[in-house]
Simulated scan of single mutants.
Amino acid sequence: MIGAAPVAAVFFDGHTAQRHPVFVTVSRDGRGLMIDAQGPGGTPMLWPLDRLRSLADQARSDSLTLTLHSDTEDETPRDPARLVIEDPALQAWLRLSAPSLKKRDVRRGTATRILGRFALAVVSIGIIVFVLLPRMSDFLANRMPLETEIQFGDAVVNQMERFLGGRAGSLLCTDPQGNAALDRLVTRLTEGQEMAYDLKVSVLDHPMVNAFAAPGGRVVILRGLLDKSDTPGEVAAVLAHEIGHVEARDPTRLMLRAAGSAGIVSIVLGDVSGGTVIGILGDQLLQTSYTRAAEAQADAFAMAMLNRAAISSEGFGAFFDKLAEMDQIEIPEYFSSHPSSADRAERAKENARNQGVTKPALSEADWAALKTVCAP
């Protein structure tokens, strides 16, 4: 290409959108490109080959767009000017002769800036998730209309079934006698008390040892908890505890916070399907990660409810004892993130010693029916 005839090209100065027709030739020493404007008055420019860079991802594949790498020590890696070459022969020669044509230059300090911005993003997300979201969720939970909260709770339970491997309504245990026994237990616990919600308690057919409260007065027991319980008093105690969360609107606050966190994670991960939201909501429900203060309040509510219903809190203590003995790898569910089961068991037993006369939570027939509420 040395000594070859000038080749027509297009030059952009990087400051305006104007196209400048130019002629390009290879310098006499073969180390650069001479750029001459077409017509009088133009100032020739020399672009050294070792500073030439090609721009990737150009719209046209039959042309080669060049820019010039800066030879100064500032943070600007490239001159804003562009040179567009359409001549195939000159393109081929440049690809063979320009040593750094495909090199991708990075501004000095780019890594530091990226790390700094990443750290700032992490701190910002942390403030949103751990400071702003809890306050916003408390504010919204206390002002959400009851009808809206009930709809929210139904949607959460439906999502929960999907999270557990079913679909809306597919895991619901529908044995009439078992559900009638469960209703009698709820009535026994709440009789004579002014409740903020019309409770809706149901059982899902899943082997996990767990129970959870959802917004709008929803309480869900998983079959595994019934299977693991030896007495109706144990189920009554767990149920009273979850009712305590319902009355304090803890699940509404938790779900609002989880939904906000899941939304942020979905944006970060680019999840447009909503799978992240469902997964985080389901995980939050199963882990029931309320604050220790909320757990202590729910325990106190449960003890008071058991006392008023004349149901011994010994079952509460027995259930906590079981949790303390369970292999955490096998059963990492109910109360896994709660305060010490041993301490709570002792408090429940201490309460039982001071209760006075109590009656079984359910009759033997009702207990048998409840244990088989998920039977086909």
Score class of each variant (00 low, 15 high):
A37G: 13
R253F: 02
E161D: 13
E75M: 15
S261D: 01
L33G: 00
T148G: 15
M34L: 15
L115T: 06
A155W: 10
C173D: 02
G192M: 00
L64A: 04
A304D: 12
H20S: 14
D366A: 03
H20I: 13
F163M: 10
N307H: 08
A56P: 11
A296P: 01
L185I: 04
L164N: 02
C374L: 13
L146R: 11
L64I: 08
G233W: 00
A375P: 01
Y334R: 07
C374H: 03
L120H: 05
L140R: 07
T76R: 14
E346M: 12
G14V: 12
F319P: 08
D321A: 03
A196L: 15
V122N: 11
D205M: 00
L94Y: 04
R188F: 04
V357W: 08
V209N: 08
S97G: 00
F23D: 12
R135N: 09
D283G: 13
L370N: 05
I331F: 06
A300P: 04
S27W: 02
F163S: 10
P176V: 15
P207N: 06
F23E: 11
Q58G: 14
N210V: 08
S202D: 11
K371R: 13
Q297D: 12
G192A: 04
G153D: 06
A141D: 00
A211P: 05
R184P: 02
P360A: 11
